[in-house]
Design a binder for these strands. Structure first.
Lengths: 144, 144
DNA sequence: TATTGTTATACTCTATAACTATA
DNA sequence: TATAGTTATAGAGTATAACAATA
């Protein structure tokens, strides 16, 4: 059974590599894309909310947003009701990049699963759910 | 089909988290554990060979080994035939940690798959192979 | 007082380039 | 000349702690 686990871990490494190289082409890193993704799907967001959503410290968000502003993907704006807060939103470039990423995401899903026989696809999804459940249980038990 | 991809990506994130928290308990990080794992399974290794195996620069290996020496998991020794090279080997602590990691690895595999019906398990493994194949093809095509 | 985001500081992983000691 | 590993330097992600502005 360790063979299946090894295959799963190898896939994890591959997907990580694939993400990193795709994102590098857009001048992005995984954490920055994650932030952009959140703003893309939730609209302009305070840095505090981003820190909670990405589960990193506020200080870290400052750094990520700095990078995204420098690369032209995001912009800081004032919060209408709270002068302490800043709202992070997408620039034209950021929006274009995210739209392309949505399309790439859908196409990747097709590439991965399109020619998998229907029954096998369903079994795979079920197995995935089972394994995810197990990992979550293990994490909870370990006190994560 | 994007649902299945999202589930897979969520699992990737979970496994990554699980790894990081488990390793932190042993004073290790993922790259350091990767290095240790290689030495554990291949015996004393030169830093050059480690750089090739982990696909990072030699400079980076210097840093990883520095950390592992500081934490007491690894040791540098002379190469018998080449006075330029150093051989990285495990200390008692490193060997103990790796043995425990081998056991944890096997137990994790059991935890994840043990109560999965035989047929579903086989379908999952087959799906995994299929998806891995696809990701590899995508990476090769993208010129990785 | 509490919250938002910042500066200050530190650690890890990563890279390139220049250098030392050996081969 | 080429190779093994180092120092020097830089950038990204992460963290804690102290602080300013605002609530």
């Amino acid at each position: 059974m360790t063979g299946a686990l090894d295959a799963l871990l190898a896939l994890v490494v591959l997907i990580d590599e694939d993400m990193k190289t795709s994102l590098a082409r857009e001048d992005l890193t995984v954490p920055r894309a994650h932030l952009l993704w959140h703003v893309h799907h939730h609209g302009p967001t305070t840095q505090r909310a981003l820190a909670d959503a990405l589960r990193v410290t506020p200080r870290n968000i400052t750094g990520l947003v700095d990078g995204l502003v420098a690369s032209g993907h995001a912009r800081r704006g004032p919060h209408p009701d709270d002068r302490r807060a800043t709202l992070v939103s997408l620039t034209r470039r950021g929006a274009t990049t995210m739209a392309a990423m949505d399309r790439a995401h859908q196409e990747l899903a097709r590439t991965l699963f399109a020619d998998l026989p229907e029954g096998q696809f369903r079994a795979f999804v079920a197995g995935l759910a089972h394994v995810t459940d197990r990992v979550q249980a293990a994490l909870a038990e370990a006190g994560g």
